[in-house]
């Protein structure tokens, strides 16, 4: 599920990793700051442009983008049918749709689209090594950055472990498809118990490994690959600060 990218050259990826960590986070913050349709649409256009400039693979974008297929209808139903305010636009028995509900459903759909698309912008345009360098540049303590990296590393491993456990259970005659929901839940419990055991064992070993490789060592730490800020990065940093400042200004006037 959560996997970092392979190394590629592009205009976006030429930026310092620290900026590539910060930009998707800022995009998410801007998404949550605004309730204006036009600003949110502009934000989505900007994120999509960055995804394109970052040469993020389509399959990575779709992997996260498909979350919107369940999220947007769910959010829309909640806001459209359970939010009142403004003019009453539609009434049928107990169902009432108000103008504000419809408006908010649109805002939320746009907001979550920008937020969800920021995930592939973070993970699809950074290698794991660049991610760690980025966090380091942002002065995040090494222990914290290693834990974050371990979590991101663990998730795809869990995904492949789950496939193996599922196949093993299916070969013993346990069905996961075309059965009643109650049976399905029961069978999935049989899947999660070995998966959990496997994951805990893996994490226990990895935590011992990184401890033995000096993660808790108190002395000075060095960085083999330390990517310095270049002129291009300072220019891009200026652009990022400009966009974010403009976003704060627009929030106060729109």
């Amino acid at each position: 599920m959560f996997q970092f990218a392979e190394y590629k050259n592009s205009v976006y990826r030429a930026m310092n990793p620290a900026l590539r960590v910060v930009i998707p986070i800022l995009m998410t913050i801007i998404g949550f700051m605004h309730t204006n349709h036009l600003i949110l649409v502009s934000l989505i256009v900007l994120v999509v442009t960055l995804l394109f400039l970052g040469k993020v693979e389509l399959k990575t974008i779709f992997r996260y983008g498909k979350m919107l297929l369940t999220l947007i209808p769910f959010i829309s139903i909640i806001w459209i049918f359970f939010h009142s305010g403004g003019d009453l636009l539609f009434e049928f028995y107990f169902i009432r749709i108000y103008e504000d509900g419809l408006n908010m459903a649109g805002i939320m759909a746009l907001r979550f689209t920008s937020v969800i698309l920021s995930i592939p912008l973070l993970l699809g345009a950074l290698t794991q090594e660049e991610f760690v360098i980025g966090l380091r540049k942002l002065k995040i303590p090494r222990t914290v950055s290693v834990i974050i990296t371990m979590v991101f590393k663990l998730l795809p491993t869990m995904e492949s472990d789950m496939a193996i456990v599922k196949q093993a259970q299916m070969s013993r005659g346990i069905e996961f498809e075309n059965i009643k929901m109650r049976e399905k839940i029961k069978n999935y419990i049989l899947l999660f118990v070995p998966l959990l055991t496997l994951t805990i064992n893996r994490m226990e070993t990895l935590s011992k490994v990184i401890e033995c490789r000096g993660i808790t060592y108190k002395g000075k730490k060095t960085f083999y690959k330390n990517i310095q800020f270049k002129l291009y990065d300072y220019i891009m940093l200026g652009v990022v600060i400009g966009v974010f400042s403009a976003s704060i200004y627009l929030r106060s006037v729109v």
Partner: peptide
């Protein structure tokens, strides 16, 4: 730990400040 052989070997050496 690392996504490349180099990254895996470097990890401990960086931690010990070489």
């Amino acid at each position: 730990y690392g996504l490349s052989v180099e990254e895996d070997i470097v990890f401990a050496l960086e931690n010990f400040g070489f």
